[in-house]
Design a protein around this nucleic acid. Structure first.
Length: 537
RNA sequence: GGGCCGUUAGCUCAGCUGGUAGAGCAUCGGACUUUUAAUCCGAGGGUCGCAGGUUCGAUCCCUGCACGGCUCACCA
């Protein structure tokens, strides 16, 4: 805990260090990537050994022999389930009977209740679900014969009129029913659904079929990204895309993934942040620019960390980190309101209000408020180091500023439930930030905490190329000395700054964590469709 | 890497003090033309994660391993 670093803290890249487990990600990949070993084949069971699948294969064969295509693609639904419910959900039985309209719906069979010469099927489509009633007398004996062999999981197309059942459910009274796709693999049990987390993540398609809540989470995710995009577009920001494969990975403290370009015979890194490229674009005249895309960090996995994750980064010229605090308040309040109609959300039992203004505390103030140390102690390196050691933090060789940042994370982070800006970070932990004019030991930077988690990191950008080169050089020296937080020198980035970058403020917001917050999801794996997993064994 | 928990039918889970395994759903056969986890009758389906050990006998006890979940640490 004490040694944990901010997710979005910037600085450099470290190569080749670490345990054997880690160096596996750094193979000597030339001239081309090694072939995948044979044992990577997916270890799915052989259908022939699963009697349930074999039965369905037999049904498939029987359909083909009867001249029925089990995978046709000529059925065109006229309505979704939700459209029908929206239009006629309130209509009584008489009104439905008087309706002179036929409806074609298609979907996956989620329930099949047969009565011998009639059956109810629940069809699930992208909008929801609707029930159909299929009678032998209505669809014909021939069609009914194979319809009776429908399996849960199959796709059906149904054409019919609307009716209301004895129990009051709006139902399509079929006069035509067609198999649209035969399903060969049985779905999980209908009542409990798919509960095994590993299977849910590995076979997300099944999870999505079975769990409305999961489908809703990812719809919400799409909506959040859309709202964020609209927010910036409305404010004259341009969305651009910068390289994900970079010769010098920079902009964040993280180990990169390594890959290789065969034709150029060169090492490339998957980016850990778009930062240095987006600021090149500011140099080029895109005074307001943003990107929402993937970053890759070669790190451990946890509830809050996936090797690839989605980050929003945006840069605004002629603005400071203080301007971005206001903008961030607006952004999150806007997204929450559009999403839920309110700025109040519940996250894992905590009531959180995103309505501005949010608390603003300096690092020093936060430590004083939540830690057991007084002002004299915070400002005295020896006293603070002793306090940190008492908290279990490894402080050997760390400058005062880094110790302060560690103490902050240990003592204050667990209390930062309501949205809180933490400002005035030490320059030692902020190598790309602009120094504060009133005190060069600190930088013009904030991190936003909500629900005890870092959600955003922002600062007024360092645009003095001489200072930046000097900081890079110090990093390079530290790198040579074995400091795993050291940066590489990115000479092209310096060159860009030498042409002149207007005064600018920039910010990164972790989209996955934002989605977790707004969907009340406890794990990042709940908001990433296909989270990284070990290979199936 | 440490700790805790788990791995039994396609799915969800029981399984007592050690005596070669059960339920519901699903499947197959039969009945049933307004069901809501439909119902009723019948049937099939298991290398109890893997490998050792103890024992006359192990799903059960012991050891190791694999895989997974949670968590702590590391990555940061």
């Amino acid at each position: 805990m004490g040694a944990r670093r901010p997710l979005f803290q910037r600085p450099a890249i470290v190569e080749g260090r670490g345990s054997d487990a880690r160096t596996r990600f750094f193979p000597p990949c030339r001239p081309c990537w090694p072939a995948f070993p044979d044992d990577r084949k997916a270890p799915m069971e052989d259908p022939k050994t699963n009697p349930l699948i074999q039965q369905r294969l037999d049904k498939l064969e029987a359909l083909r022999e009867a001249g029925i295509n089990p995978f046709p693609n000529d059925f065109r639904p006229t309505h979704t389930a939700a459209e029908i419910v929206a239009a006629h959900g309130d209509a009584g039985a008489d009104a439905l009977g008087a309706l002179d309209e036929t409806f074609a719906v298609a979907g996956r069979v989620m329930a099949f209740r047969s009565f011998g010469k009639a059956a109810f099927v629940k069809l699930q489509d992208r909008s929801g679900a609707i029930q159909a009633y299929v009678r032998r007398d209505a669809v014909g004996t021939g069609a009914y014969q194979w319809f009776k062999r429908t399996d849960v999981g199959d796709y059906l197309g149904v054409v019919g009129t609307l009716m209301r059942t004895r129990t009051g459910e709006l139902t399509v009274d079929a006069h035509e029913v067609r198999l649209l796709t035969k399903s060969l693999r049985p779905l999980p049990e209908k009542w409990h659904g798919l509960t095994d987390k590993e299977t849910r993540y590995r076979q997300r398609y099944v999870d999505l079929v079975m769990s409305p809540r999961v489908r809703e989470t990812f719809r919400t995710r799409a909506r959040i990204v859309q709202l964020v995009r609209g927010f910036f577009q409305d404010r004259d920001f341009v969305e651009l895309e910068t390289p994900m494969m970079q010769p010098i990975p920079g902009g964040a403290t993280a180990r990169p993934f390594v890959t290789h370009h065969n034709a150029l015979d060169m090492t490339l890194y998957l980016r850990v942040a778009p930062e240095l490229y987006l600021k090149r674009l500011v140099v080029g005249g895109f005074e307001r620019v943003f990107e929402i895309n993937r970053n890759f960090r070669n790190e451990g996995l946890s509830n809050q960390h996936n090797p690839e994750f989605t980050m929003l980064e945006f840069y605004q010229a002629y603005a400071t980190y203080e301007d971005l605090m206001g903008l961030t308040e607006e952004l999150l309040a806007h997204v929450s309101r559009e999403l839920t109609g309110s700025t109040r959300i519940t996250y894992q039992g905590d009531e959180i209000d995103l309505a501005p203004p949010w608390d603003r505390l300096t690092v020093r103030e936060a430590v004083l408020r939540h830690g057991e140390i007084d002002e004299a102690g915070v400002d005295d390196p020896a006293a603070l180091a002793a306090y940190a050691r008492g908290l279990g933090i490894e402080v050997e060789g760390l400058p005062h500023g880094k110790v302060l940042a560690e103490v902050l994370e240990t003592v204050a982070e667990p209390h930062l439930v309501q949205p809180t800006f933490i400002t005035r970070y030490p320059v030692e932990v902020s190598p790309l930030s602009r120094r504060s004019e009133d005190d060069p030991r600190f930088v013009d930077r904030f991190e936003l905490y909500i629900a005890r988690r870092e959600i955003a990191n922002a600062f007024s950008e360092l645009n003095d190329p001489v200072d930046q080169l000097e900081r890079f050089r110090q990093q390079a020296a530290a790198l040579a000395a074995g400091d795993d937080e050291a940066h590489r020198v990115d000479r092209d980035y310096i060159r860009a700054l030498e042409y002149g970058m207007p005064p600018t403020a920039g910010e990164g917001i972790g989209i996955d964590r934002l989605v977790m917050l707004l969907t009340d999801s406890p794990s990042i794996r709940d908001v990433i469709l296909f989270p990284h997993m070990r290979p199936e064994s």
